[in-house]
Simulated scan of single mutants.
Amino acid sequence: MSAADPADDGSDATRTTASRGSFVRRTAALFALGIPGVAALGATVATQLRDTPLPPGVDLPLPLLVAASLIPTALLLLVAVAVGTYCAPRAGLRSHVDERVARGTPILSSLRGELPEAVGVGLAAGVAIVGLDAVAALLVPEVAQLQRAGETPSVAALLATLPLRFLYGGVVEELLLRWGLVSLLVYLGWRLAGTGVGPSRRVVWAGILVAAVVFGVGHLPALSGTAASLGIPATPGLVARTILLNAVGGVAFGWLFWRKSLEAAMVGHAASHVVLVGVSLLSRLF
Score class of each variant (00 low, 15 high):
residue 7 A to C: 10
residue 16 T to D: 10
residue 16 T to C: 10
residue 17 T to V: 15
residue 17 T to K: 07
residue 19 S to G: 10
residue 19 S to F: 12
residue 21 G to Y: 08
residue 22 S to F: 01
residue 23 F to C: 04
residue 30 L to R: 01
residue 33 L to M: 09
residue 35 I to K: 01
residue 39 A to E: 05
residue 43 A to E: 04
residue 44 T to S: 07
residue 46 A to F: 05
residue 46 A to C: 03
residue 51 D to K: 06
residue 53 P to N: 03
residue 56 P to F: 11
residue 62 L to E: 10
residue 65 L to W: 12
residue 78 L to N: 05
residue 79 V to P: 04
residue 80 A to R: 11
residue 81 V to F: 03
residue 83 V to T: 08
residue 84 G to E: 05
residue 84 G to H: 06
residue 84 G to C: 08
residue 87 C to H: 06
residue 87 C to E: 00
residue 88 A to E: 07
residue 90 R to C: 03
residue 96 H to V: 05
residue 102 A to S: 14
residue 103 R to E: 14
residue 106 P to T: 01
residue 107 I to A: 01
residue 110 S to H: 07
residue 112 R to T: 09
residue 117 E to S: 11
residue 120 G to E: 13
residue 128 A to S: 13
residue 131 G to R: 08
residue 132 L to A: 15
residue 136 A to M: 08
residue 139 L to H: 00
residue 140 V to Y: 02
residue 144 A to L: 14
residue 145 Q to N: 04
residue 151 E to H: 13
residue 152 T to S: 09
residue 158 L to S: 05
residue 163 P to D: 08
residue 165 R to M: 11
residue 168 Y to W: 12
residue 178 R to E: 02
residue 180 G to V: 14
residue 180 G to N: 09
residue 182 V to Y: 02
residue 191 R to E: 00
residue 198 G to A: 11
residue 198 G to S: 11
residue 198 G to M: 13
residue 199 P to C: 09
residue 199 P to V: 10
residue 200 S to N: 09
residue 202 R to Q: 12
residue 203 V to Q: 05
residue 211 A to S: 15
residue 211 A to M: 13
residue 215 F to S: 03
residue 220 L to Y: 15
residue 223 L to I: 08
residue 223 L to M: 07
residue 224 S to T: 15
residue 227 A to F: 11
residue 228 A to E: 13
residue 231 G to N: 06
residue 232 I to A: 02
residue 234 A to S: 15
residue 237 G to C: 00
residue 238 L to D: 00
residue 246 N to Q: 10
residue 252 A to D: 05
residue 255 W to F: 13
residue 268 G to K: 12
residue 270 A to W: 03
residue 277 V to D: 01
residue 278 G to H: 02
residue 281 L to K: 03
residue 282 L to F: 13
residue 283 S to K: 12
residue 285 L to H: 07
